[in-house]
Structure formats: structure tokens, C-alpha cells
Amino acid sequence: MISGIIFTLINPLAMAAIFMAPGLQEGPAETFNYMVAGFVVIFGAMGLYLVSLATRNKNLSQDLETLQKIDERAG
């Protein structure tokens, strides 16, 4: 199957047929939606991780404060 596709890509006649087919005149394949999905994942995952870092940091800082107060009262 792969060799078939490659043959199609190499063969100029086949290429011409592909590009003359309706909807494909622009050349590159129409993959805009996939690109958007990809970047949503990239920035989404990094953003979520940053949020998780910040929340964990906030909670721990609060815990630390409370604990330090208890510590002072205790002695």
C-alpha cells in the first residue's frame, strides 16, 4: 500500500490528476482543523500544568502558614 502511494507521488501524471481533482487545486492538503487541535493540546497541556503548579503552591503555602501559627502557639 505504501509503495503504491509513493508511486502515485512520484508519477507526474498521477500528481497532475490529484491536483486537478476538484477541491485540491491549492496544493497542500487541507489540514487546518488538525493543526488547531494540535496547538490546543500543546498550549492546553502546558497551561493546565502551570495552573496545577500554582494551585498546589497556594495550598501548600496556606498549610505552611497555619502550621507555623500552631507551632508558635505551642511554644
Partner: peptide, 12 residues
């Protein structure tokens, strides 16, 4: 030229 815009994902 062939894959179009989705190839931009490749860098990251």
C-alpha cells in the same frame, strides 16, 4: 507543500 498546515505541529 504536501501535508499543509498540520505540519506546523511538528516543531513543538
Amino acid at each position: 507543500a504536501v501535508m499543509g498546515l498540520v505540519q506546523k505541529v511538528f516543531y513543538f
